[in-house]
Design a protein around this nucleic acid. Sequence first.
RNA 1: GCGCGCAUAGCUCAGUGGUAGAGCGUUUGCAUGACACGCAAAAGGUCCCAGGUUCAAUCCCUGGUGCGCGCACCA
Length: 794
Amino acid sequence: MKELAKAYEASKYEKEIYQTWEKSGYFNPDNLKSKGKPFTISLPPPNATGILHLGHATMLAVQDLIVRFQRLGGRKVLWLPGTDHASIATQNVVEKKIWEEQKKTRFDIPRDEFVRQVAEFAENSRGTIKNQMRCMGVSCDWSRDRYTLDAGLSQAVREAFVKLYKDDLIYRGKRIVNWCTRCGTTLADDEVEYKESVGKLYYIKYGPVTVATTRPETKLGDTALAVNPDDERYRHLVGKEFDVTLGKVKVHVKVIADKIIDKDFGTGVVGVTPAHSVLDYELAQKYHLPLKIVISKEGTMTEEAGIYTGLKVKEARGKFVADLGEQIEKIEEYKHNLSICYRCSMPIEPMPLEQWFVAVDKPFRLNWFKKTTLKQLSLEAVRSGQIKIVPDRFEKVYYQWMENLHDWCISRQIWFGHRVPVWYRKNIQNESEIYVGVESPLGDGWQQDPDTLDTWFSSSLWTFSTLGWPEQTKDLQTFHPTSVMETGYDILFFWVARMILMTKYILRQVPFRTVYLHGLVRDKQGKKMSKSLGNGIDPVEMIEKYGADALRLSMVIGNTPGNDFRLYEEKIAGYRNFVNKLWNICRYILLSVNDVRVVENVPESKTLADKWILSRFRQIADLVTNKIEDFQFSEAGEALYDFTWHELADWYLEVAKLEGEKDKILSYLLTQLLKLWHPYTPFITEVLWREAFGEKTGLLMVQPWPQNLPPQNNEAEKKFDVIKNIVIGIRNYRSENKILSTQVLSVAIIKADNLSSEASKIIEGLRTKVILVAQPESSWKKLEIGKVILAISS
RNA sequence: GCGCGCAUAGCUCAGUGGUAGAGCGUUUGCAUGACACGCAAAAGGUCCCAGGUUCAAUCCCUGGUGCGCGCACCA
């Protein structure tokens, strides 16, 4: 007989238990004795910017649940952790810090020195976040921890770039790209966010016509006017060229006609600004119009803008509108989407720049008999069922996005990240030479491309670069394709789609078999948690207060795949209470059972209650196994919660107090219950396993998942339910009639089918305060409970 | 413009073609072989609205309303 403390204090055990796990070596699949099939999850690497937030905590809780379930199930489990250098995000944090401390921008510091500072910051953050991850109880293999800037991963990046380049799937070209004037870099299309805003639509008298625009200052860069060919109002102008004075500036335009112009929008005439609009750029190419760049990368007006040169875009707009004066016919309110940067929320300027792109629609030879494009390859991976997305509605979302995908701009003017593996020089004849390679070229005069690669380029290789590619390592053969990719739906495009694209291209394999998407964490009002709103909950603080197990439960139970969920402290506290319940179930078993030990074989059942609880256990164990395999973690957890508290604790333990001699059964139930709970609440179950069974039995984390299950016994369940209902009925009767607990009632059972001979002991014993008698008196009240009829003395 | 999600108890959310569920909160009673982070009981629902299919709809179909989201467009 052992005695546990009255209440479980998570903070007393968690650190030590985690260390025990880590020291055991079982996080590393090489040390598992299992001969099972490999099971792999690549951890979506958190950004190296700082601290663990609830989004991370959610993904860690779900992944650790899956991973521990599979490990107990005998699979050779690898959960590979890592961190992402997150170029723009990380660089931004450091830029901000430097500005606050020294009032300097990155351009005031040598590039090498700046990169060194960012790298140092990232290194510290990585250490912090990894320790915070440990607090969650993650059973990942730290010996295989990776960082996107590791030498090996950097080599993988260069190899991938070169391979794409050789297949003509990477090219350098001048295109209108998204330029963030704050971050000083280009962005991919999906890195642009849209914010609805009410702007002004200016109608400007423009030579013989009137043109509507939301951005008057860009009209300085107009080189044409466009109308619809069917628009009779303007047909006479098509093909003509003329000079127009706009305020104090002259522009020269040619009138073109194209079906793309909407007759009914504005005046039906568009001022074509090839340098600052994607659509206009396309028109310019089609009709060979000149390009006039009036906005610079810094967000100021260029020399082409005449008297407005040097002004910021907004200032130029004000001044220009003032100068236009009477030429402005009217101003309308106009709702439109403002493009902003997903990292800094500042407006995006479209502008033509020479950048590196991945060609997604260009056919290439996949093998001897098949030509395809990166886009087709990515679509097929999901359409064919090689990859399943859970919940499946996101498959449609994936198709839609993938079908709309344009060439992917991968070069960034950021300094922190993987340098583009391209070098340039002038040869003796003064011709430009270009070298693209994994290693820097030999010989003098080579200058490396100053740009770095999109951070998502390196993370698109994550599932295999972390396993050693381009080397054909044993890990790569054993653990790839990975089994499950678990992540938030918000990075389906940024990351998941690009992993599919790159992995299919480079390895001709899928990166993973199943994509499980969880929802986003929100606060109690359903708002997104953010620093600026101050509504965020710090997971580490919650762990200190309530324990990691409670936090994990609060994120897994009551949460369905792909749907956002609300998290708040009371919820976590509620699950803390449950964790304590589990502790006390064990505490009671340890107090009442003489010889507690691991029992794997199904024990003999002596009483009806025994048969009932074993039958119920059987069903719960099956359900938990099936639901977890089917990614329904919430349903499995809820059912197990209900069984543990409201069947085992509320009923069986109470009956056990009456019947006695339950050593074997209670040992069995404890053994198996701890296993079932372990994926959800690893800390407390591991503590209880050790407290109950001792260290010689080994760690719970590598025990076998419940295998020898008792038979289902419907008959026993029905019979026990009859007794339960009688007990509930009597308690209910007492409560409704406000009968004092000191008053003992007499009860006669008048009619009852299927009533077990063991019933009377239970009915009298479970705090009903009744005495069962054979014959009722005539004055007694009748009480019907289902098919049972009782008579109760009043 | 195209597409998606949600709407169920006061709150947060599960769920199912057949009697509607949990946790929290509320009310009432309680020291009982472990647990007050507890025990026992209760109240609380037009399952958003209108049609349709069905013997039967909260669930399936059609249309609508409200909230949220993604993509595209954005002169």
